[in-house]
């Protein structure tokens, strides 16, 4: 992957997280501890600060380094989870990925790492509500359909609203977690959209 593409990905994800940090924190205040926006901002600030070094690396290594940067700067639940996602994606990524299949496989490996780290699965009102269907959609797609990706992410996010959380801080709320979007699902959807933006050349 071109260093410029990596930089564009870093720039766009950073922009999107900054623009929505307050929204993420608000969502987390409702059913968590009110720091998700702050956490994501800290992590993507750190990635942006290391952008030059990351962009020099081959795609897989770049993902690993970005993941490790998240792990070492975010903390909380989202740090190890997004960190594991990117690190596992990086490990599974061929040196020169040349098909949607390559990316789908790597993403699948990342999502599995999230599940392993979080001891979680779909239906527990977490970021996995977005990540899992996106992984499936990528795997099933012959060609990359950005519109479908976006819709899949949005639908996954929307589905968290009526769920009862059984993992993460929101699970302590029991029934009272119902009726709120999950903050981690929202950040996952935002990140998917940010990547789509770059692919579409926005």
């Amino acid at each position: 992957m071109e260093p410029e593409t990596i930089k564009a990905l870093i720039r766009r994800t950073h922009e999107v997280i900054l623009a929505h940090a307050e929204e993420l924190t608000d969502l987390d205040q409702a059913i968590g501890d009110g720091d998700h926006g702050i956490n994501m901002k800290r992590g993507f600030d750190a990635i942006a600060a290391a952008a030059d070094a990351i962009a020099e690396l081959p795609c897989g290594k770049a993902l690993e380094k970005a993941g490790m940067t998240l792990v070492m700067s975010v903390g909380g639940a989202s740090g190890p989870l997004y960190g594991s996602l990117l690190m596992a994606m990086g490990k599974a990524m061929p040196e020169a990925p040349d098909s949607v299949g390559d990316i789908a496989k790597a993403f699948q490996a990342g999502v599995e790492a999230v599940m392993k780290r979080g001891k979680s699965e779909g239906g527990e009102k977490t970021m996995l509500e977005v990540l899992l269907p996106v992984a499936t959609s990528l795997k099933d797609a012959g060609a990359l359909d950005i519109g479908v990706l976006r819709k899949t992410a949005d639908a996954g996010l929307a589905s968290t609203k009526d769920m009862k959380a059984t993992k993460g801080r929101a699970s302590f709320l029991g029934e009272r977690s119902i009726g709120h979007l999950d903050p981690g699902a929202r950040s996952s959807a935002l990140l998917i959209h940010a990547v789509c933006d770059v692919i579409e050349g926005k």
Partner: peptide, 11 residues
């Protein structure tokens, strides 16, 4: 010590 209300990091 982590950030406010945020677990510290592995490093």
């Amino acid at each position: 010590p982590g950030e406010v209300f945020t677990s510290s990091t592995p490093d």
